[in-house]
Simulated scan of single mutants.
Amino acid sequence: MKKPSKQELILDAIIQTYLKSRMPIGSSELQMKMTLGISPSTIRIYFKKLSDVGSLEQLHVSGGRVPTHQALMGYWQEKLDLTQPLAIKNIDKIKRSTHEHNLFCIVEKTANTPFKELVTVQNRFLILVFDEHEVVLKFNAKVEQFLQRLVGCQMRELKDISAQVGLYELHEKLSAIFSQAPILREGEKEMYSIAHELQNEAFIQRFQTLHFVESMLDGLYFDGFVPQGCMAIKQKAQLKDEDTTVDLFCFGRIESDFEDFFNQVKE
């Protein structure tokens, strides 16, 4: 792995300090927080370089520096690993940490899982097996033959196909799984506060749509999906209390300390 440069270390230190304090930081203050033995005068040189490349900005002539929106985007893309499911301690911890960090969070049981297996029971029942769900239908040889060809497709895809071909019992049972209430929906006050501050309430309609989360891909979302200056995260998580896989969605200002939030809620 490439060793980070002093400029990169200084930018990281500025961002981490800013996430904690939400205040501009000066060279002397940063020098006291770092352990690299860099003088304030040298830090000021790097401040100038980072400002020139658009990573820092100075809100007031005599004030310290703050990271730009672009720098924060790069920081979160580098720091947050969404490739592995997050092991969550418990729902109460998420609820408390959501309010502490002024975020809006949804936790839903993962519904869009693969159709893994079709089991025939004594020519009486057909059992469709998913990761955490099973759907039972009355046996029908033609339906059995049809469903065998669909093993491996996603639950949502199967739900849509079942409606198209007239398998209404299957469609209703899969729809019932998708309509289950979220395990947690917390922080709507914070979401409305952001909408009011940015004079942009259009994005709230998307977040109010039942189970919009399961239609999203895992990843980070910036400008476009969310308003300028905000960030959203969709990630798989393992809820230990219930031994189940869930979808975790978080939204907030991009300068919210998402890293500390995840450190608090994970096992």
Rank of each mutant, 00 (worst) to 15 (best):
M1C: 11
K2E: 12
K2T: 03
K3P: 00
Q7S: 14
E8M: 07
L9K: 09
L11E: 05
Y18A: 01
K20Q: 07
S21D: 10
S28D: 12
E29C: 06
E29L: 09
E29F: 05
L30H: 08
M34S: 12
M34K: 11
T35Y: 10
T35L: 09
I38W: 09
S39T: 00
I43F: 10
R44M: 09
Y46V: 01
K48A: 06
L50C: 10
L50Y: 05
L50H: 05
G54C: 06
S55M: 15
E57Y: 11
G64A: 04
T68C: 05
Q70G: 04
M73N: 08
E78H: 11
L82H: 02
T83M: 01
P85N: 01
A87E: 13
I88L: 13
N90Y: 02
D92F: 06
K95I: 07
S97V: 02
S97P: 08
S97W: 04
T98P: 03
H99I: 08
E100C: 00
L103G: 04
F104C: 01
E108C: 13
K109G: 12
A111T: 01
N112H: 03
N112T: 07
P114H: 01
E117D: 14
E117I: 00
L118S: 04
V119A: 02
V119E: 08
V121Q: 09
V121W: 06
N123E: 15
R124D: 05
F125M: 14
F125L: 15
I127R: 14
I127A: 10
L128F: 03
V129M: 08
F130A: 09
F130V: 07
D131V: 14
E132I: 08
E132V: 08
E134L: 07
V136M: 14
K138T: 14
F139K: 09
N140G: 15
K142W: 13
V143Y: 09
Q145D: 15
F146W: 14
Q148T: 15
R149Y: 09
L150E: 15
Q154H: 12
K159P: 02
I161E: 14
S162F: 06
S162G: 05
Q164E: 14
Y168R: 14
L170Q: 03
H171R: 15
H171I: 04
E172D: 13
E172T: 14
K173G: 03
L174N: 02
I177C: 10
S179V: 09
Q180H: 08
L184W: 05
K189I: 10
K189T: 12
K189G: 15
S193W: 03
A195S: 00
H196R: 11
L198I: 03
E201W: 10
A202V: 07
A202Y: 06
R206E: 08
R206I: 15
R206Q: 12
R206T: 15
F207H: 04
T209K: 11
T209A: 09
T209D: 06
L210C: 04
H211Q: 08
E214L: 07
D223R: 10
F225H: 11
F225Y: 13
P227D: 06
Q228R: 11
Q228L: 12
G229Y: 00
K234W: 05
Q235M: 06
Q238C: 08
Q238G: 05
L239Y: 07
K240H: 11
K240F: 02
K240A: 10
D241Y: 06
E242G: 12
D243K: 13
T245G: 10
T245P: 09
L248Q: 04
F249W: 03
F251S: 04
E255R: 01
D257F: 06
D260Y: 02
V265P: 11
K266L: 10
